[in-house]
């Protein structure tokens, strides 16, 4: 039991009642939501939906009849076509780093929704090394793991925002079919990381104390303490079924996308705590909600074959 649970338990014991009240929550003018994460490896797509009142029993609906136009360095790049489930795409259009992309959306009841971003250049990985480490020295058995040391040089004079993804790919055959299994768990206590993703949620990386407890599928950090420096970050591989091929990705994120993920992390942290201040999600959509961001990637891979 942690201390927050302790406090909540005390309050719970004292709680006299909880009841539904007739409290007017006017939604006000509903918003058009534009979400798009561009990357230099896949076709651009934009998701358009509409917000609904917080007490509305239906889910937020996708907008299928919006006008969505893409601009490349302020020049029209084309009109995006509806693909279903709120997605609009421009066939075969893959964005590049260093070019400003803008999207202009006109949706029924709401026009002139705009957003723009420029994908940063990828930051190369200098090396991804592994070091064998003894972690359990029992009289009955000994166990080891591998530490992964990633070395990167941060570009000087630029504000960089990073995401690191590390996963293992193994093949599994049953009965005659070959399946790929992706394991995305690693441990880290490197203090440079600010946020982490576990499953499909992002959280602030606060009080990272127990190295065995923090299993992440991605970590996020900025270069505010590293600007222009060559730096290393360390991960420990999960012991179970450690052998296999590993892939590591270093993503360079747009600032707005990073701020969006940070606000999402704080939003998740505050969620469910009635005494915390509510968190407003970061948005760079003018006259609407959502995020128009992106990233570029650098990748490396290595093989672990422990005897």
């Amino acid at each position: 039991m942690n201390w927050q649970s302790f406090i909540l338990s005390v309050l719970f014991v004292m709680t006299a009642c909880e009841k539904i009240i007739d409290y007017p929550v006017s939604p006000g003018e509903l918003n058009v939501v534009v979400n798009s994460i561009l990357n230099t490896d896949s076709t651009i797509s934009v998701n358009i939906s509409k917000s609904v009142g917080i007490l509305d029993t239906s889910s937020a609906p996708y907008i299928h009849n919006a006008s969505v136009n893409l601009y490349e360095n302020n020049e029209p790049a084309g009109s995006m076509k509806y693909q279903g489930n709120g997605f609009y795409a421009l066939d075969g259009f893959v964005p590049e780093a260093g070019i400003e992309y803008a999207v202009a959306v006109n949706a029924p009841g709401k026009d002139n929704i705009r957003a723009s971003c420029m994908i940063p250049e990828p930051v190369p990985i200098i090396s991804a090394d592994t070091i064998l480490r003894l972690i359990d020295n029992d009289v009955y058995y000994k166990s080891y793991t591998y530490d992964v040391i990633l070395t990167v040089r941060d570009p000087p004079g630029l504000s960089n925002f990073y995401e690191i993804i590390l996963f293992q790919k193994t093949l599994y055959t049953y009965p005659d079919t070959v399946y790929s299994i992706y394991s995305r768990r690693f441990c880290t206590d490197d203090p440079v990381f600010e946020y982490y993703r576990i499953n499909n949620d992002v959280y602030p990386l606060a009080l990272n104390l127990d190295t065995e407890m923090l299993n992440a599928s991605a970590v996020y950090f900025s270069d505010k303490l590293l600007d222009g420096k060559k730096f290393t970050v360390k991960f420990s591989l999960e012991q179970w079924n450690i052998n296999g091929m590993y892939y590591i990705y270093l993503r360079s994120l747009t600032k707005d996308y990073y701020l969006y993920l940070a606000s999402l992390a704080y939003y998740n942290q505050a969620s469910g705590n009635p005494f915390s201040e509510r968190v407003q999600l970061h948005s760079n959509i003018s006259n609407g909600l959502g995020i128009f961001g992106g990233y570029s990637s650098a990748a490396d891979s290595f093989y672990v074959g422990m005897q």
């Binding site: 918003n31 979400n35 490896d41 917080i54 489930n85 995305r184 509510r278």
Partner: peptide, 24 residues
């Protein structure tokens, strides 16, 4: 209090294609 709710961008990573895909 929140007045509205909306769909967030939470792209999930697809290692097979080393890219994100959307899931809402």
């Amino acid at each position: 209090l929140p007045a509205q709710k909306f769909i967030s961008a939470l792209p999930l990573f697809n290692p097979q294609e080393s890219t994100y895909y959307w899931e809402h």
